[in-house]
């Protein structure tokens, strides 16, 4: 257990402490310990650390590949999906949840056989604040966020991502992120040691 010594602001040092500079020496020993320690930084462009599972980076679309949740299985007959393409149903829930009204541009058309096809799903990431509300709002677990955080571009137009970009991310980065173990709460037991057991009031 860490022992905390609490000092009031107006507590002055004792006579011995102030004459022998004991508080100076304490600080100096701490920095000296740091000096002998190995550096803890990463050399960024050469080595990159993996962001945690809950990291909210560039958006992606999970593709239609047979891992759909029951909510989508119920309505997939009405949609014209292709294997390996986005499983978006153009419900506009993400746009509704988004705090920024002009961020999304979603368009869908009716195919000759009566099914619905999403033809456009653009996100202007310059407006995005990466709150993740759109991901929470998605009813079919299509929209997701990956761990891509290097999003600098040369033009404003390049900051707008399209459906095919997001499909690619959903098939690669977002998929690996989904399979990652959660670094913060690996399991309930560990959580309980940290935060105590959660008591429900019913």
């Amino acid at each position: 257990m860490i022992k905390l010594k609490r000092l009031r602001r107006d507590d002055s040092l004792g006579p011995l402490e102030s004459v022998l500079f004991l508080d100076f020496i304490k600080g100096l020993t701490i920095t000296m310990k740091n000096l002998l320690r190995k550096p803890i930084t990463t050399q960024y462009p050469k080595e990159k650390i993996t962001p945690p599972k809950r990291f909210r980076g560039k958006h992606g679309h999970f593709v239609y590949d047979g891992t759909e949740p029951p909510s989508l299985q119920a309505i997939q007959g009405f949609m014209s999906f292709e294997k390996g393409k986005s499983r978006c149903v153009a419900c506009y829930m993400c746009q509704t949840a988004c705090p920024m009204p002009t961020l999304f541009r979603i368009e869908a058309v009716q195919m000759p056989d009566g099914t619905k096809k999403v033809v456009r799903f653009d996100m202007n990431l310059l407006n995005c604040l990466f709150c993740g509300l759109c991901v929470d709002a998605c009813p079919v677990e299509c929209l997701t966020m990956s761990d891509i955080h290097e999003m600098a571009v040369y033009r404003r137009s390049q900051a707008v991502i399209h459906m095919d970009d997001m499909e690619k991310i959903g098939a690669t980065n977002a998929k690996t992120v989904r399979e990652l173990p959660d670094r913060i709460w690996r399991n309930d037991k560990e959580r309980e040691t940290l935060w105590g057991k959660v008591k429900w009031n019913f």
Binding site: T31, N34, P39, I40, Q43
Partner: peptide, 13 residues
């Protein structure tokens, strides 16, 4: 360099 290592950094490399 010294300041970097005091703060567990690397300094200029």
């Amino acid at each position: 360099k010294f300041a970097g290592h005091l703060q567990a950094r690397r300094g200029p490399t």
